[in-house]
Amino acid sequence: MKESVDRNGARDWLEAELADTLDEDYELEISEPTLSLEIAKIYKKAHPAAIDRHLYFRELLRLQSELIRLQSWVAYTKSKVVVVFEGRDSAGKGGVIKRISQRLNPRICRVVALPAPTERERSQWYFQRYVPHLPAGGEIVLFDRSWYNRAGVERVMGFADDGQVEEFFRDVPDFERMLVRSGITLVKYWFSITDEEQQMRFLMRIHDPMKQWKLSPMDLESRVRWEQYTKAKEEMFARTNIPEAPWYIVEGNDKKRARLNCIDHLLQRVPYEDVPHEEITLPERVFNPEYERQVLPRELYVPEKY
């Protein structure tokens, strides 16, 4: 009888945990801004065939469980993985990075999003500021923008001159080949969206107080220089798409499909497999009959408003 009660209790607890998990995902997905009806109509017209919500969450959870298997393999084999995420502003890089790292151990999988270089960093070898963030054995590093800033924003916005850009294009293939020779698995993604989709997402951010922080003056200027970014991207692909570290383009107009497609593709790029696991057992709690828990002052507690 007791065993049956324990099983039922465990099942109830597991269902509650799954419900909490879905709640967390729903919180991440609450991204509909307070839009005017007109903008909302335009957005719906541009996205007529959205993926079924339940299918999306089911596939996301399945892929995230595979990412946990990948994480275990990386830690066990002391492998090193670098994933580079590039693309236009608002293309969805941050969304997929969040879903990849959401359930992983931050000591194994970390996100690197470097700010603008300091005066000292600008005087260094260009790749120097990125090297300290490369993984040691048993680590995964996700670069939310990377050394390819020089081929994109720095070039288009005039922060790097023609000579610096040309030097970058000469150096980056050798730099990435060195990474691969050192044992790093290097995967590079470019998130692609249309001109119209970026305009829509920028408008949504402008009208959403919770997302306005995502819009920088540089982002707004990128709208003006759309064609310059396109030309820079095309040359970047032509000169840095090497066999050792090819580019992979993620169609990003549909955010949810882009996330699923990218994670699924990433899992196929790394030859992970199941690794040995020690069986985990919960030890018995040690009770000391002479121990008496102290009563702490009420002012130490966070007020229970909810």
Rank of each mutant, 00 (worst) to 15 (best):
K2I: 06
E3V: 12
N8V: 07
A16M: 06
A16R: 07
E17M: 14
L18G: 00
A19L: 12
A19I: 13
L22S: 04
Y26F: 08
E27K: 04
S31A: 07
L35S: 08
L35H: 14
E38I: 13
A40S: 13
A40V: 08
I42S: 03
Y43D: 13
K44Q: 08
P48L: 09
A49C: 05
H54N: 11
H54K: 10
L55C: 08
E59Y: 05
L60E: 06
L60D: 08
Q64K: 06
R69D: 15
Q71M: 14
S72V: 01
W73M: 00
W73E: 03
V74E: 04
T77S: 15
K78E: 14
S79E: 09
V82E: 00
V84F: 09
E86S: 03
E86K: 13
R88I: 13
K93I: 11
G94E: 12
G95M: 03
G95I: 02
I97E: 00
Q102S: 04
R110M: 03
V112G: 02
A116M: 01
P117Y: 07
E121T: 03
R122C: 11
R122I: 05
R122A: 02
R129A: 06
V131Y: 06
H133F: 04
I140Y: 00
L142P: 03
D144N: 06
Y148C: 01
A151T: 02
G152F: 09
G152W: 03
V153T: 02
R155H: 05
M157P: 03
A160D: 07
Q164H: 03
D171H: 08
D174I: 03
R177S: 14
R177I: 15
I184L: 06
T185C: 04
T185H: 06
T185Q: 08
T185L: 06
I193H: 08
D195G: 11
E196N: 10
E196A: 15
E196Y: 08
E196W: 05
E197V: 00
E197Y: 05
R201Y: 01
L203G: 01
R205Y: 10
I206V: 15
I206L: 13
L215K: 12
P217N: 10
M218N: 07
E221R: 11
V224A: 14
E227Q: 15
K231P: 00
K231Y: 11
K233L: 07
F237I: 07
I242A: 09
P246M: 11
W247V: 10
V250T: 11
E251V: 00
G252E: 09
G252V: 09
N253S: 02
K256A: 04
R257L: 10
R257P: 00
A258R: 10
L260C: 05
N261M: 14
N261L: 07
C262F: 04
C262V: 08
I263S: 01
I263W: 02
D264I: 00
L266I: 06
L267V: 01
Q268R: 13
R269S: 13
V270W: 00
P271W: 03
P271G: 07
Y272R: 05
P276K: 09
E278A: 08
E278P: 07
E279T: 07
E279Y: 07
L282C: 14
E284W: 02
R285A: 12
V286W: 01
V286I: 11
Y291F: 12
E292Y: 12
V295T: 15
R298S: 15
E299C: 15
L300G: 14
P303M: 10
E304T: 12
